[in-house]
């Protein structure tokens, strides 16, 4: 019996390396999805700008470089702000804080939410109900409200924003983990895996996670857009980073008073947030197409609905 169980293990045929597969998938997805390709490039540019900000020939974002409220010109592409700091430099440096906060909080939400969802999907009837009701309770609070509760408890600050946004998005990932787990739990191949002696952890890793991989990537990617929005909202309301540090939400708020005389102070971070949300949304679809080429031919409308739902959460 044990000898049989061992011989069941599939023989892996020689296959191309992972990189080659990825490159092939990338070309396939790029051919089907031009918008996706453009957003993938834009996402790369955004991340590179944020990473390489210290190396770019930009004035220090905290230094006064000229008169206050200078309109955009060849010298200061986006003009100067209410104190005379370079708006372009502040927007690029602001990406570092805003995007890092968004990425960290998305990671937190995914790491907390997905296992909880899988656990709930895997458990028997009533414990699963308990976990999902807790998710329902969290979902009963609109994202911003839940984030404000966390701000109340921890006090304003950068860490607070990451924790607040991360906790607000945890139920979103809970749903992502729960649905697929529930539907494959009763499949024969799960029973078979259990019969040949796979540990629960191995079953989850080898059989459950791959099923939801493309969904997780779509949700992570568009969630980065919505966590950017929520983090920027908290910074905008004054619960995040303190003013001298460049940040999209805080700079947007600072410019509101000068709308009549210097609209560019708020416009630059506003455009940056909008572009980030757009790029994050389309990038998710593009990456999902790479992982699961079936999606490329599927109607895009079905995919878009999940992201529309998340917009409300932010």
């Amino acid at each position: 019996m044990t000898a049989d169980a061992v011989s069941v293990r599939p023989v892996t045929p020689p296959h191309p390396g992972r990189l080659e597969i990825l490159a092939g998938r990338f070309r396939l997805a790029a051919r089907h999805d031009t918008v996706g390709l453009i957003t993938a490039i834009m996402a790369l540019v955004l991340v590179l700008l944020a990473l390489l900000a210290p190396l770019l020939p930009l004035p220090n974002p905290a230094n006064l470089v000229g008169q206050a409220q200078l309109p955009p010109s060849a010298h200061h592409l986006f003009g100067t702000d209410e104190l005379g700091r370079d708006v372009l430099s502040r927007t690029i440096w602001g990406a570092r804080h805003t995007l890092v906060a968004a990425a960290l909080s998305t990671a937190l939400a995914a790491v907390l939410g997905t296992p909880l969802g899988i656990l709930a999907g895997y458990l028997s009837r009533w414990p699963s109900g308990v976990v999902m009701r807790i998710m329902d309770i969290l979902l009963a609070f609109p994202g911003l409200l839940l984030a404000l509760v966390v701000v109340t408890i921890l006090g304003p600050g950068v860490t607070t924003v990451v924790l607040a946004v991360g906790i607000s998005f945890t139920p979103v990932f809970g749903r992502v983990g729960y649905g697929p787990t529930r539907s494959i739990r009763a499949q024969d191949y799960i029973a078979a895996a259990r019969a040949v002696g796979c540990s629960q952890l191995r079953i989850v890793r080898r059989h459950v996670l791959p099923v939801m991989a493309s969904e997780i990537i779509v949700v992570v990617s568009s969630a980065i857009g919505w966590t950017t929005l929520l983090a920027a909202t908290l910074d905008f309301l004054g619960f995040g980073i303190r003013p001298p540090i460049p940040d999209w939400g805080a700079d947007l708020a600072a410019g509101v008073q000068y709308l009549g005389t210097a609209w560019w102070i708020s416009a630059a971070p506003g455009v940056a947030i909008t572009v980030t949300i757009l790029v994050a949304n389309y990038l998710g679809d593009f990456l999902a197409g790479m992982i699961d080429p079936d999606r490329l031919t599927k109607r895009r409308t079905e995919i878009k609905d999940t992201t529309a739902l998340m917009a409300g959460d932010a």
């Binding site: 929005l229 947007l252 709308l259 609209w263 506003g270 949300i277 529309a308």
Partner: peptide, 22 residues
């Protein structure tokens, strides 16, 4: 729809104030 979902509502508010009020 794409722009409506992507533009942060507080930024849209600022744009509206700028155009229609200021």
């Amino acid at each position: 729809a794409v722009l409506g979902v992507a533009i942060p509502y507080f930024w849209l508010a600022i744009l509206l104030v700028l155009v229609f009020a200021v």
